[in-house]
Design a protein around this nucleic acid. Structure first.
Length: 921
DNA sequence: GAGCACTGC
């Protein structure tokens, strides 16, 4: 079998770092890199391929056949490779010995061998064969030296208004009922179905069987047949809405339009917009602002020289509103009225009214910073303060100063209107009344200790006033679409619906006919901890604005009642007025990179409505620098510029770039990155945990969760991307389809940038190395069973029990992980085993490797690293920064320094051996 | 041996 017949099979591609310039080389790589030292790559390839040929089974009715064959082939090949290596090249082991000898020699001869550097954290592997030490540096780029200020928000922001308040304490404690129920389940499991379980307390009260009250419904139908996926939930819910209200059935579109409150104030609104560059429109629910504003502006001639743009925080909204407006205007969607969301641009040359997500407009500003194509921009739902909305607001403020002809309209709920007005220099507020029904608001008389218990009691109290049968329906975003659709079904006569929802029901979807709302006063909030570089999912008291939004859901189709499960005093004193804007509680690496590429040199000069906390910005800047996206002076590098082309986290963007230009595994990396960009593809219904776990394990690649994801996608693709196949293997079809879309988008971007899409074939070590090149800043070393220590922060972290590496017989010493999540413990999610040498090589900013500690000689060790080079460069840049500081116009870096922290002098002991003579030749 | 918000490019 000649290589030419398999163009996808490529020769091993070396990592970017030049091992030869340092003294150490991992035996494996040394072997591969020696053209004369044994087996050439073609022979290896052949051995590999032959091993595969012998045992392969392919076929449609054996969905896993090719995977298992691959796996076996891989194993067989590995063994063969090792055997061949040792047989064909007996010098191999000898060379290892030689290396050892060489190093001892070098060590003894060298006068620069020093004791351990105190400034380092030393992670020593207790491996008998290779005594390997990974040293961790603590280097900062000059632009982060001292106490440079990047933002007006110096203090961290607390997710709770008052940590001592009743609600904050309750939030931290969690629900006792939930805990007990969990323990009960545990006991039941231990009892091993010895006795049939009859039901829980809750089930007994309601006269419903246990399994009916459980939150997730089974995946299979009544006969155990897998349910075919019903398609996208958006399309579904939109369909069901049609014709639900009598009003929309009996009135023409024109009549409906004129009935809206916005219509009554049309002339006055247009006059205010004409007289002001910025207008804040306070439009309540049901006022018609989203659909009418654009049409008013269009009718008033604003689209004569450009487009009227309207941004939405969510994709569905952008799509469905555009559809509605095109119907009202009796034009084809995509003509005069269009929309643009990720993956879908439904606009044309004729488009005058364009609905889009705020992320799309943000991306557009990358190519046209003055947004010239628009005469008028409406930022809808700005009060939600989504990350992109906030960034856009700062950007547009600058554009408004340059383009006096541009009009901006910001719509907001009542609570935030004044802040927007102030931000835009006292812009007028225009009020449009809403058209909703009155909602009777009730508060608890005393604080509740357990929100789940109180919620159940409250629901039952409402129910017992007029007790028909109850139908309990859960909904959350990760639930399969066909099950989600159930909440929109009309209840049968004599049945009352109870919908148990996450905050998906607060804004994202509307269910008709809700009469009662029970609000527990909490939500799960993702809060970023910059110090630990970690997201935490916290139960947090909601804000007053959230509470009103929840209550308002009872008054959409008739008068309703809302029960808040906290006291009125708590509402007033313990809740923030509005939720903390996303920009202040999230990782900003992405945003900072975007702003840098938009030419914002100093973030302090950027006008944020609410500036992000200092610590978040410094961590983001540091991470970007460590990734190689920023120079030592904090300017964008070529790599950084390339990264902004990709709509994803900077570290993932780096993986894509490295996989294409260095490692030759972009085909694989495209898939992995796409899979990491969607919610988990593994479906784990509560009542079929063991089955679904077993299904997941079939996809495991033992040393990498990333490669496991790759396997899942490849199998899904190989099996025709069928929903039935997904159901059978406990996978979410929706998530996989989305991964496919994302994959296509990234591939298109790569082609646009002339980046080759290549496969590395079966050499998955290449993929792991590439992952290491983008994630070395998130690495950990093994401490115990399943227990690791983060190399840089020394924080103890664990393998998540769903990881492929969990419970594996041979846990790797070093791993990199995709993210850290704090739940009951600090868990690494999506983990890949790496080699310590890769870390030192690819993450030269942070790590260097020492080998062979000679204990008897008093821990005399030699360090090999790129650190000296790096420090030299940093010193050079530091000097440059100083020079810039003294010059007039270049005082960018240091002018914000309050007081310079005196840097510790680099101790003598950190002297580095830089071998000038090669050790082998 | 776990834990469960939501968006967006």
């Amino acid at each position: 079998m000649a290589d030419t017949e398999r163009p996808w099979k490529r020769r091993r591609v070396s990592p970017p770092a030049k091992h030869t310039s340092t003294a150490i080389r991992a035996p494996k790589e040394e072997f591969d890199a020696q053209p004369d030292g044994g087996l050439d790559s073609t022979a290896l390839d052949r051995a590999w391929y032959d091993a595969g040929e012998s045992g392969a089974v392919f076929g449609d009715d054996a969905p896993f056949a090719d995977t298992w064959a691959d796996r076996e082939r891989e194993n067989a090949l590995h063994e063969k490779k090792m055997a061949v290596r040792q047989k064909v090249n007996p010098k191999f082991l000898q060379r290892q010995k030689d290396n050892d000898a060489w190093e001892s020699n070098r060590m003894l001869a060298s006068s620069v061998a020093q004791t351990r550097d105190q400034g380092y954290v030393d992670f020593s592997a207790d491996n008998d064969d290779i005594r390997l030490h990974l040293l961790v540096h603590d280097i900062k780029p000059p632009f982060l030296d001292g106490k440079t200020i990047f933002t007006k928000q110096l203090e961290p922001i607390s997710a709770v208004r008052d940590p001592q308040s009743d609600m904050a304490v309750t939030a931290r404690k969690g629900s006792k009922v939930v805990k007990e129920r969990r323990q009960q389940k545990e006991r039941q499991k231990q009892a091993q179905e010895a006795t049939a379980v009859t039901g829980t307390a809750l089930g007994n009260v309601m006269g419903v069987k246990d399994e009916d009250t459980d939150s997730a419904a089974p995946l299979s139908g009544p006969n155990g047949q897998p349910i075919k996926n019903a398609g996208s939930k958006f399309a579904d819910s939109l369909k069901k809405d049609v014709g639900q209200s009598d009003f929309s059935r009996t009135k023409s579109l024109r009549e409906q339009r004129e009935y809206l409150p916005a219509f009554a104030v049309r002339e006055e609104l247009l006059r205010v917009i004409r007289d002001n560059q910025v207008t804040i429109v306070v439009g309540q629910t049901g006022s018609g602002k989203t659909t009418q504003l654009t049409q008013f502006l269009y009718e008033d001639g604003y689209a004569a020289n450009g487009m009227i743009g309207c941004t939405q925080p969510r994709r569905v909204a952008a799509m469905s509103v555009a559809k509605r407006v095109s119907e009202e205007m009796e034009v084809k969607l995509g003509g005069t009225v269009g929309y643009a969301i990720r993956f879908e641009d439904c606009t044309s040359k004729e488009t005058k009214i364009k609905y889009m997500t705020d992320g799309v407009l943000l991306r557009e500003s990358l190519t046209n910073s003055d947004l010239d194509q628009y005469t008028c921009i409406i930022m809808d739902e700005a009060h939600e303060r989504a990350l992109n909305t906030d960034v856009l607001m700062g950007l547009i403020k600058k554009v408004l100063a340059r383009r006096r002809d541009l009009k901006l309209i910001v719509t907001s709920a009542t609570m935030n209107a004044e802040r927007f007005s102030r931000f835009y220099g006292g812009a007028p507020e225009f009020f449009i009344p809403g058209r909703t029904f009155p909602v009777d608001i009730q508060y608890s008389r005393s604080p509740n200790e357990d929100y789940v218990d109180s919620a159940v009691r409250q629901v039952l109290a409402i129910h017992l006033n007029d007790p028909p049968k109850l139908s309990i329906l859960p909904i959350y975003s990760q639930m399969p679409a066909d099950l989600q659709a159930k909440i929109f079904d009309r209840a049968e006569p004599g049945v009352r619906k109870v919908i148990v929802a996450t905050n998906i029901a607060e804004t994202s979807l509307t269910v008709d006919g809700i009469m009662y709302v029970v609000d527990c006063g909490f939500s799960k909030l993702k809060v970023y901890n910059p110090r630990m570089g970690m997201d935490t999912l916290q139960i947090t008291p909601i804000s007053q604005a959230n509470a009103s939004q929840r209550a308002g859901r009872a008054g959409r189709t008739g008068p309703g009642k809302a029960f808040h499960l906290y006291t009125e005093r708590a509402f007033r004193d313990e809740l923030y007025i509005a939720q903390i804007p996303e920009i202040q509680r999230t990782n900003l690496a992405n945003t900072v990179l975007l702003l840098k590429s938009l030419g914002v040199r100093d973030l302090l000069d950027f006008d944020f409505m609410d500036p992000p906390p200092q610590e978040t910005i410094t961590t983001s800047l540091f991470d970007l620098w460590a990734l190689g996206a920023l120079t030592n002076l904090g300017e964008l590098t070529d790599l950084g510029r390339k990264m902004t082309s990709f709509p994803m986290d900077p570290s993932l963007a780096k993986l894509v770039i490295m996989s294409s230009n260095t490692y030759g595994c972009s085909e694989e990396m495209l898939t992995i990155v796409s899979m990491l960009s969607v919610p988990t593809v593994f479906y784990r219904p509560k009542e079929r945990l063991e089955e679904s776990d077993a299904a997941r394990e079939k996809f495991f690649v033992h040393d990498s969760d990333h490669l496991t994801l790759l396997t899942v996608y490849q199998q899904w693709a190989a099996n025709g991307m069928k929903d039935g196949w997904c159901t059978k293997h406990f996978l979410h079809p929706k998530a996989l389809y989305r991964a496919k879309e994302i994959r296509q988008q990234i591939e298109d971007i790569m082609k646009g940038l002339d980046m080759p899409v290549i496969s590395c074939g079966y050499d998955l070590d290449i993929v792991r190395q590439c992952i290491c090149s983008g994630f070395y800043h998130q690495a950990a070393k093994r401490k115990g069973l399943g227990e690791y220590i983060n190399l840089r922060t020394s924080v103890s972290v664990q393998l998540h029990p769903t990881s492929a590496l969990f419970n594996s017989g041979d846990p790797p010493d070093y791993v990199v992980y995709h993210e850290l999540i704090l739940t009951s413990k600090e868990y690494m999610s999506c983990v890949t085993a790496v080699d310590a040498h890769w870390l030192a090589d690819l993450g030269g900013v942070f790590y260097s490797v020492k080998e062979k500690g000679y204990g008897a000689a008093g821990r005399r060790e030699v360090e090999y690293s790129k650190k000296a080079e790096l420090e030299e460069a940093i010193q050079f840049d530091r000097e440059r920064a100083k020079q810039m500081d003294s010059s007039e116009n270049g005082a960018v870096i240091k002018k914000k320094v309050i007081s310079n922290v005196v840097k510790k002098p680099i101790s003598k002991s950190s002297a580095v051996v830089k071998p000038t003579i090669g050790r082998r030749r």
